[in-house]
């Protein structure tokens, strides 16, 4: 149970998906605060509070798409998990890919969870709600 709202960083380049995810969080009546970056470089800048992100909060959870411009989701995942300051932050891979290779590679790079986005809207909304609920209310996040 957190006294302050849960900070979530969404790494997603598609505005449509960003919007749908925001809508999903809205419907789940979440108290989480969603921050959005469009690519891996920006994601790392946000996490390291560099440049425009100097005042950014430290996220409690990262939702990471794999199909990203500049640096792929896997590369971003590797950067996070090899950074001693960042590696405790749970990373949930949220992607359209259901390929075994992507799943395997993600867990090898220490992803905390891998979720294939359901094509159906209702199912997607349910999944987002479950993720929000799980990490906010069920799991204990690192201090």
């Amino acid at each position: 149970m957190h006294s302050h709202p849960v900070e979530i960083l969404l790494v997603e380049d598609s505005p449509d998906d960003v919007d749908l995810t925001i809508q999903a969080f809205k419907e789940s009546s979440s108290r989480s605060r969603l921050h959005v970056v469009e690519d891996g470089i920006e994601a790392l800048a946000f996490l390291r509070r560099q440049g425009p992100y100097a005042a950014a909060p430290r996220p409690d959870l990262i939702l990471l798409d794999l199909n990203l411009p500049k640096r792929t989701g896997h590369e971003v995942l590797q950067d996070i998990k090899s950074d001693p300051d960042l590696r405790r932050i749970p990373v949930v891979v949220l992607t359209t890919s259901a390929a075994d290779a992507d799943v395997k590679r993600s867990y090898e790079l220490a992803a905390n969870c891998y979720i294939t986005k359901p094509v159906d809207l209702d199912a997607f909304f349910t999944v987002v709600s479950m993720v929000d609920h799980f990490w906010r209310d069920v799991a204990t996040l690192p201090p």
């Binding site: 449509d16 749908l20 359209t96």
Partner: peptide, 20 residues
């Protein structure tokens, strides 16, 4: 086919969202 799926999913999602 992979890239085609993305916009299609968006079309499907927003149509559903509209109905919802």
């Amino acid at each position: 086919s992979h890239d085609l799926q993305e916009p299609l999913r968006v079309v499907a999602s927003y149509t559903q969202l509209l109905a919802r």
